[in-house]
């Protein structure tokens, strides 16, 4: 019998739908960080993100137990779509979509007017740029990589980053500065264009 950890997502989903409850834990362990990161990027608050994460999986469970799942090999994408619907519902109910803005930061993915008003082609280019930036992150030392992720992908303030990583604010700022210097050098070296 195949080890549960080696099963594919679709095998785990089918087994879960057949009553093997333990498969849900494996699916969650496998994809929780990716799904939680998406939710956190959209709502910017850990408490709210955890609530949305929980509600998302409750819908996932309800759908699976009703046999509502299309086997397309993209379980995390399917779950993120469910999270997306909950997030949009949340903001619709809030009647104030501007709450998502994080104006306290000098740059934020969600505040990118250029991206929000861009056309499909621009979006594809923007997505490609983000992918290249993420690839650059891999070349950074771990402590610099962590600060960039927390600051620009998760929207944390430097005070929050300092608390999360157990360093002073100045150290966090210094790591970001060196990360940006290193990334600029890599952009020039690799001749990457960072404009849409």
């Amino acid at each position: 019998m195949k080890n549960i950890q080696r099963k594919t997502d679709d095998e785990l989903v089918k087994a879960f739908m057949s009553g093997e409850e333990k498969c849900l834990q494996v699916l969650i362990d496998r994809h929780r960080n990716k799904i939680y990161s998406y939710i956190l990027m959209m709502v910017k608050q850990h408490e709210l993100a955890e609530d949305v994460f929980q509600d998302t999986f409750i819908k996932v469970i309800n759908n699976l137990k009703r046999g509502k799942y299309i086997d397309n090999g993209r379980f995390p994408s399917w779950v993120m779509r469910i999270a997306h619907n909950l997030i949009i519902d949340f903001y619709r109910k809030q009647k104030n979509v501007k709450e998502v803005s994080n104006d306290a930061t000098d740059y934020d993915l969600l505040n990118s007017k250029k991206f929000s008003e861009s056309n499909i082609e621009d979006k594809m280019v923007y997505s490609q740029i983000l992918t290249e930036v993420v690839e650059l992150l891999d070349y950074l030392p771990d402590n610099q990589k962590e600060v960039v992720k927390l600051r620009h992908f998760m929207g944390l303030s430097f005070k929050e980053i300092a608390e999360e990583t157990g360093v002073s604010i100045n150290t966090a700022l210094g790591r970001m500065r060196y990360a940006l210097i290193n990334m600029r050098a890599m952009v020039e070296e690799k001749n990457i264009s960072l404009t849409v």
């Binding site: 959209m42 949009i88 979509v97 979006k123």
Partner: peptide
Amino acid sequence: KLEEYSLSMIDFIEKL
């Protein structure tokens, strides 16, 4: 716009 952004983030995150 938020919906569009959210969906494009799903596409982006999927690639990571």
